[in-house]
């Protein structure tokens, strides 16, 4: 049963890494995009938030699995 806790901890960490890489890449591209075309920064911000929300959704699925493991 202790292994479940270990797995939950590792799972949470790895999920966070994935989400961090994804959101970081979105942020990078959005910054580049709005630096090149400042007049499009409003649209870019909206699509950035939407894609970040999708990535966050996948990461949260992972976290839910970890929580279920930890509460076993």
């Amino acid at each position: 049963m202790e292994l479940a806790y270990l797995a939950a901890g590792f799972g949470a960490g790895i999920t966070t890494i994935g989400a961090a890489v994804g959101i970081g890449m979105i942020g990078k591209s959005a910054m580049e995009g709005s630096a090149r075309q400042p007049e499009a920064s409003g649209d870019i911000r909206t699509s950035m938030l939407i894609s970040a929300a999708f990535i966050e959704g996948v990461a949260l699925f992972g976290q839910v699995v970890c929580i279920v493991l930890a509460l076993k």
């Binding site: 929300a53 999708f54 966050e56 959704g57 949260l60 699925f61 976290q63 839910v64």
Partner: peptide
Amino acid sequence: FALCIRLFA
């Protein structure tokens, strides 16, 4: 489901 979990979490 993602909408629900996202806001809650």
